[in-house]
Design a protein around this nucleic acid. Structure first.
Lengths: 234, 234
DNA sequence: ATTGCTTGATTGTCAGACAATCTGACATGG
DNA sequence: CCATGTCAGATTGTCTGACAATCAAGCAAT
């Protein structure tokens, strides 16, 4: 035995554990580019995504574009009507309400598990909070503020310790970003919510879980009302 | 105005409201067939899904198969390793635990909303319960019992009134069905859980929401232990 | 005003092809 | 014996080109 510390073949015990190689397919890069364009407001809600036009524009073939569009549709960023192609989703009032309701279920579950959660998960919440607040103070770009803000909320779901719930929260945030991109097209009012979030974490650190849950519920309700108001949807 | 009752062009007021035409693409049919084969145990966990072989077998082209495989992967039923193709997922112990934890979050949220839920949603729970119990009494097939059983649990999530949470629950059930299909390959022990479910609904009808929630938590914990035991995973 | 036809555009699906990559076996050299 | 280099086969990732089905719009006809 030349490797006394790694007898099991499945688990490599080597000095290269920290190395990673980002191998991305063309399809993934196309999907990323489309997402970026949507979130940056370059593609308005309802815009049809023609396969041939995109293929020529991006310098890839039509099947590749088609597969990328399938990903966007699966994520809810776009909708496909049979034989009519796919178009950027238009966030309805019902969608926003539904997303916020689902957020409350997921994030509330995370907050309630704060006392029992692993220390590393609680630390993830703290670090995402400081990442957000420091971005606010340093006057980061609007896109980045949104990103950090939503990342904080996802880290709350992370308290459940469930990768699947986090994935669901991520998917909700993607849809939310779509709605926000439509709002920001009109008026970019990323009002500072750092204080609110800091207060939430302080309640948690103090052990007041139910207080934090109530606070979160109000916070999410406010966010919903704010988005609906900005979208001018009843 | 020749249509005084339907002035808005988006809402058709015609006598054909009940008609529906199921238009399904080839890709969807391929995906359905693959799902069926997995759930029926024809495809063992870990089986590689070769694109050319499937295309010839099903009489469709490779891009069509490829797109269907993408759907399966997005659902979590299969995994894709770059340049190595996709294979049926193998349910790990961690996956089962995670699925059950996520189930508890979603279904618990539904149960807690029973008092405030719309009457039609509560009725959906009742009807799915009788659909399950009657299937049990009539000695329905194993597949159908599973289907009804999981449909009842999804109907609990439906109490939240959130389509997205229901979709998430559906996705969890699909993964659960995959794990159960592996179990049933060995021993088909769909032990009768109708009594347990009936007791849960009776607690709800009585207005004992917290009691129902506790009952559900135990029920889900038992289910998790049972599946893990059957899979012989620690 | 409704129906029917025609044209152009777009998607859904197919067939064939090629390069890149993985697997496994084999050969080579220390 | 072990590590490395090499090769053939298999499979995927992607491209090209093509065709039928469907849709939208415009126009003609009843």
């Amino acid at each position: 035995m030349s490797q006394p510390t790694g007898p099991s073949p499945g688990e490599q015990r080597s000095p290269f554990r920290t190395l990673h190689l980002e191998l991305s397919s063309t399809v993934d890069r196309v999907a990323d580019e489309l997402r970026r364009a949507v979130f940056d407001g370059e593609l308005e809600s309802g815009t049809p995504l023609r396969e041939v036009a995109l293929a020529e524009s991006l310098g890839v073939s039509r099947p590749t574009v088609r597969e990328a569009l399938g990903i966007l549709v699966a994520e809810g960023l776009a909708v496909r009507e049979p034989n009519r192609g796919v178009a950027i989703s238009t966030p309805e009032g019902d969608s926003v309400r539904d997303i916020c309701r689902a957020r409350w279920v997921l994030e509330g579950a995370g907050v309630r598990r704060w006392p029992d959660a692993d220390e590393t998960l609680r630390d993830a919440v703290r670090t995402s909070l400081v990442a957000y607040t420091s971005a606010v103070r340093s006057g980061a770009s609007y896109q980045e503020l949104n990103e950090r803000h939503l990342a904080f909320h996802v880290s709350l779901v992370g308290l459940t310790g469930s990768p699947r719930l986090v994935a669901m929260a991520d998917s909700l945030m993607v849809e939310l970003k779509l709605a926000l991109a439509q709002v920001d097209r009109i008026r970019r009012n990323a009002h500072d919510q750092a204080d609110s979030h800091t207060a939430l974490v302080m309640l948690l650190e103090r052990g007041d879980v139910t207080g934090a849950a109530d606070f979160l519920e109000r916070h999410l309700a406010d966010a919903e009302a704010s988005i609906l108001d900005a979208l001018r949807l009843d």
